[in-house]
């Protein structure tokens, strides 16, 4: 399987993602934001970081980059696209996924491990995943997910809530909500579920020598669902 990771000025999780994808068997290429064409890929990843210094709104300037037209075209043809953290913010600003990411409720940059519960139904990302309560890492200032009540309802009806913050037992409550996101939402799919945007970083927890190895389940499962 071939993947591409897009690098924006200010991306800082691009190389972690490259390492993770290669570790689990993807043939990955790095793509500069100013390019116009994505190399032939089965998966495109918008990595975390602080593209364009988070100027104006997080992800808003990156969403107007040259390469984004190709990403949108790839996604509209059903290609798999993942946006992690700043990548999620970029997906939101391009309109590829619904909602907005506001400043964290308590105005603090949050950098810690959290648990999320994955939605295993009807999507290639988490279907058949061996573990659906994952310990992943978050590091963000603006991850407070928001959308209108109508959008929330239609996403719930269509199973588009991808991951929700929970505790280690999988219980979803206000106590396990790190940033004030509505319904503890940590990540969402687009309507067709080929696009996943989420704040937690699976690429940061892919080895037993790190604080968690649960990101491995994500990548292994995705690759096996793509074959």
């Amino acid at each position: 399987m071939k993947s591409s990771v897009i690098i924006f000025p200010g991306s800082n999780c691009d190389r972690d993602m490259d390492v993770a994808l290669k570790k689990f068997g993807f043939k990955n290429k790095m793509v500069w934001h100013n390019d116009n064409v994505i190399p032939k890929s089965d998966l495109v990843v918008l990595p975390g970081g602080f593209s364009y210094g988070d100027y104006l709104r997080c992800g808003s300037i990156a969403a107007k980059s040259n390469i984004i037209n190709s990403v949108v075209e790839f996604a509209n043809k059903g290609g798999l696209v993942i946006g992690i953290c700043n990548g999620f913010q970029i997906l939101i600003e391009t309109g590829l996924v619904t909602g907005a990411l506001l400043r964290n409720k308590y105005l603090k940059f949050i950098c810690k491990n959290i648990f999320v519960k994955a939605n295993k139904t009807h999507n290639k990302y988490f279907n058949k995943i061996k573990k659906d309560i994952l310990e992943l890492h978050i590091a963000h200032n603006d991850g407070n997910y928001f959308c209108s009540e109508d959008d929330l309802k239609s996403m719930q009806d269509n199973d588009q809530i991808a991951v929700r913050y929970c505790d280690s037992n999988g219980e979803i409550s206000e106590n396990s909500n790190p940033n004030g996101s509505i319904q503890n939402i940590a990540g969402v799919f687009n309507e067709k579920k080929n696009i996943l945007g989420m704040m937690p970083h699976p690429e940061r927890v892919i080895d037993n020598c790190l604080s968690s190895n649960d990101g491995s389940y994500f990548f292994e499962n995705l690759l096996s669902n793509m074959k």
Partner: peptide, 9 residues
């Protein structure tokens, strides 16, 4: 209706 944590602070 949109939470404005900075305004609140």
């Amino acid at each position: 209706g949109v939470l404005d944590p900075q305004g609140k602070a």
